[in-house]
Design a protein around this nucleic acid. Structure first.
Lengths: 194, 194
DNA sequence: CCCTTTTCGTAACAGACGTTACCGTAGCAG
DNA sequence: CTGCTACGGTAACGTCTGTTACGAAAAGGG
């Protein structure tokens, strides 16, 4: 059995390259050749690691979800109470910490692609509903006496605010600096403060 | 001078076709041939009405801005006071009235395209800042004693909420029905109610 | 050391893209 | 009615796309 490769590492390498191309050149610039060049290989490797371009796109989308989920888990675990967790999870969503500002651009790219691709739309909905469930759980923990309707409305309002800030900041960073985003989030969270 | 055409009407026809294709098939499906077929002509006419595909895209983007601006002017003019105007302008932004639900999808498509096209990004920023200025003027009219910082934060929070609702509803209509969007907006406006 | 098997770069493929050149044709001037 | 000219449909161009076929190189088993 000669010569083995690390399939998992290859797929992650290529998914990261997909991100970078998507963040820099947008959806129209996302070609297999661009991804291959960014990853330092040729299209041959890409097509051996993924059967098709769609598979590469879907894997990159899954990777985006996994990473945000991991960060949110970490932010939540490091918090003292439910309100802190809510502020931490939403706060790192609007001000991405480790030079991950490109994630917003990538997210917008995937979102636009999902509008015409049912498989991508499915993943988007799953990811967003997972996010909604997390926020809702924390909101309910902050305000145990609230009705389901109140929790749902607050949850979806918070998520819409955060994603709106992200989207608008991705397209016009000057109009939506990080500090303003944090202030907007803090103001929206005041009604939940214990 | 034989045979004249209505250039303006042609450009509007083609821009509308561009919208429809963009809303249905997304950015990757937006080809000159698809636009021509949707408009009921051939690529020959398209290339005579617009010098290039980019010009067509930019014109369609301008048309989007003009239409929303007209609707916002009308909504504002039909309102009794500043608060009503604020509620009307933002309300019709989240629940598009005349079967214009596709506008959200088109908006997302243009946004994603703007991330890699400087000319489109320019138009997006101009349109959004115009929208921000309108909302800010109305917010200031509702709360004359507020500082500039308070007005700005509230304005950008409201706009982010509205655009976030729009974007999320475009990708997952079931999770963000029209009534929930209206309720979320109404709740965000309570602090401005006189 | 050689051989086998997997890996992956090379190159070609068909198709679709934006764009261009060309020519038939429709409609007003005379 | 005739002729001229702008209009717009047809078809081709070169380029780039995703995908496929093939062959060279590399690495573990005997």
């Amino acid at each position: 059995m000669p010569r083995q490769r690390d399939v998992q590492a290859q797929r992650e390498l290529l998914s990261n390259a997909t991100w970078q191309v998507l963040a820099e050149d947008g959806l129209p610039g996302l070609t297999l050749r661009a991804v291959a060049e960014r990853a330092g290989c040729t299209t041959g490797l890409v097509m051996h690691a993924f059967p098709t371009k769609r598979a590469l796109l879907l894997h990159a989308r899954d990777l985006l979800y996994e990473r945000t989920a991991v960060r949110q888990d970490a932010a939540e675990a490091a918090s003292a109470d439910a309100f802190d967790a809510l502020a931490a999870v939403l706060g790192q969503a609007v001000d991405l910490p480790h030079g991950h500002h490109e994630e917003s651009r990538v997210w917008v790219g995937f979102l636009a692609a999902a509008l015409a691709d049912e498989a991508l739309a499915e993943r988007h909905r799953a990811a967003n509903r997972s996010f909604l469930a997390r926020i809702r759980r924390l909101v309910a923990a902050c305000r145990p006496k609230w009705t389901d309707e109140q929790c749902e409305l607050t949850t979806k309002s918070l998520v819409a605010l955060v994603e709106g800030l992200n989207v608008l900041a991705a397209a016009d960073p000057e109009a939506y600096p990080a500090r303003l985003q944090q202030e907007a989030l803090a103001k929206a969270l005041t009604e939940l403060r214990a």
